[in-house]
Design a protein around this nucleic acid. Sequence first.
DNA 1: TCATTTAACGTTTTT
DNA 2: CGTTAAATGA
Length: 715
Amino acid sequence: MHIDLFAELNPEQQRAVKTTDGPVLILAGAGSGKTKTLTHRVAYLIEQGLAEPQNILAVTFTNKAAREMRERVAKILGANADHRDFMPYMGTFHSICVRILRIDGDYIGLNNKFVIFDEADRQTVIKQISKQLKIDEKKYPARAVARNISSAKNEMVTPEIFSSTAASPIQKVTATIFPLYERTLKEQGALDFDDLIGRVVEMLSTNKTIRSKWQNQFRYILIDEYQDTNATQYALIKLLTNKDNNICVVGDDWQSVYSFRGADFRNILNFERDFPKSTIIKLEQNYRSTKNILDAAHAVITKNKLRSDKKLWTAAGVGKPVQITHIYDERAEGETITRRIQTIIDTQSRRYQDFALLYRTNAQSRSLEEQFIRRAIPYKIVGGVRFYDRAEVKDVVAYMRLIYQPEDLVSFGRIINVPTRGLGPKSIQNFLDWRQTNGVTLDEAFNHLDQINLTPKAKNAFKEFAITIRNLRSISEEVTVDELLNCLLDQTGYLKYLEDGSIQGETRVENVRELESVAKGFAGGGLSSFLEEIALISDLDGLSESQDAVTLMTLHSAKGLEFPIVFMPGMEEGLMPHSQSISEQSGMEEERRLCYVGMTRAREELHLFYTTQRILYGVVQHNPPSRFLSDIDSEFITQSSSIEQQQIATMPDSFTGKITNEPRYVLELNAGDQVRHQYFGVGVVIEVEGENAAIQFKNKGTMMLNLTFAPLEKL
DNA sequence: TCATTTAACGTTTTT
DNA sequence: CGTTAAATGA
């Protein structure tokens, strides 16, 4: 065996790797080498011959984490990460459940060609039902009903049980919609995210043979981010674990920040009780942050009542003190942050990618972004509008879904008149009404267009549509996904529809092309796995990872990441902790954990900011500094006097007035200069007129840009 | 059917 | 403030 499998692990980590039998709980503090420990454990199981790869189940919370683990295990073992047969089952709860359902779903009468509905699809269905039942959408928004249904499913509450316990008006409305929602999904051969896990739980708990089969298969189970599991996932874990109880869970209740999605960190606190005779291993050595950062974060988190007890330590030096800066408003905030970044870049050997801005709400990104544009500092925003949520991408995916699953009415509704085929709401309604009253499938309904109350024009449009889709469906059985996508774009006229000559149209075409390149990677996988992948993917992670830029993202998305220098703007009451969470004790504790997660992302420098006033939703607000700041304060006075001095807010160097008087940053350019634009790429300056310049970009044509604001760099 | 105007709404969101 | 969805008008 490789001697170095243990060489780089500390004693606790080694124990976590070697304790293969029985239940193991690894309480892994922030930055304690959790991923390393997990990957080594998997490698160890295989290398020791304790299990074949396929006997190991490793559940992660993101696809990215799964991929990372797969690659690292492969590297340790000298295997090929792409060769799935030699690799354990690794993936998210959702992706693993999809695999199980594809194999055995027919045992619970599942449509073997099910499609996956995302949150938007779910709301579409609910809106339709609300409309049919004449429910006031204003009073009972689909969003709220969707949330109720989702949390019910996550707690394994059936429509019947829900109905019997519904008390409030919105719950009663949900109770009426819930069973119809379930029926609709069934009719359309669709499962929502919650079903993916719920149906596997149902299958395993009702069918002993299947349960034994999978329990036999998965002899070693690993669950990452265990603090973020919900009731259904917990039930699944219980059902998959066989009598040997070789289950290893890893997590940190201090970093549980997804309770609003049904995650229950009591799962991790109760592990010892749930799995008797378990081994508990605490990873408390932090390899990431300086002592100052760690102590400050510790001071914040230990104010929580409901938490496990641990104390992280580091062999690293004290490092720089945590800097708390008080400034005037959000504009000054972005100003100060960007200037600090630029100063550090200019004076130290740092790169833009060493910096991250972590904020509470996505809405905060705008004002910060403006300052990055102004100073021409490269940045990337994580989150916001996801690639797969773009309308054009969803349209194309809807076509593919309808080709794959002929009864996917949500997809049908999305694209039946996109591009316009002269089918208005009335024609579509007549068609759907006929289908419903006659109780036939969608695909069957196309065969009876003559019996439906339709204008000749509409009838023909439906006919054409049916021919196109059916044709593509037959093609789909023979060609690769990207070939199908190409045919689809052409035959449906969708590409032509996008090419309307506008710049937005161009961007949309590019996005569709991007989707095509994703499809190319699925040459062998087929339509089914392509649709799965894009349904379960979170964002285009890794697409622009390589570029040297400052990262802007929410505290939630920062979990699991680390950066040398972290800025946390908006440390004010109302934002952090967020006003919506302040009233409840549990909510407050979660906010505190969120703050802790943010602080512990920093390796070397941590800068916290709070403002005197902030414009939020167009209203000027004056919020006091976050209570979390004073938590750090009091602890530090006793622990570190050097920090105490630094704690005194640095003079607001960008206080009132100064900013506006400052000369604006203008890139000095001449005709012929080469420039790079953040989005448009490399171009040549044609002409300069004051603040504006005409720049010719490769593939993009010539554009007039304002040099004050355009994210340009001179080459 | 499409474009324009108006109203409403605004935590976080690994799947 | 800025974005989105619904409502209205051409």
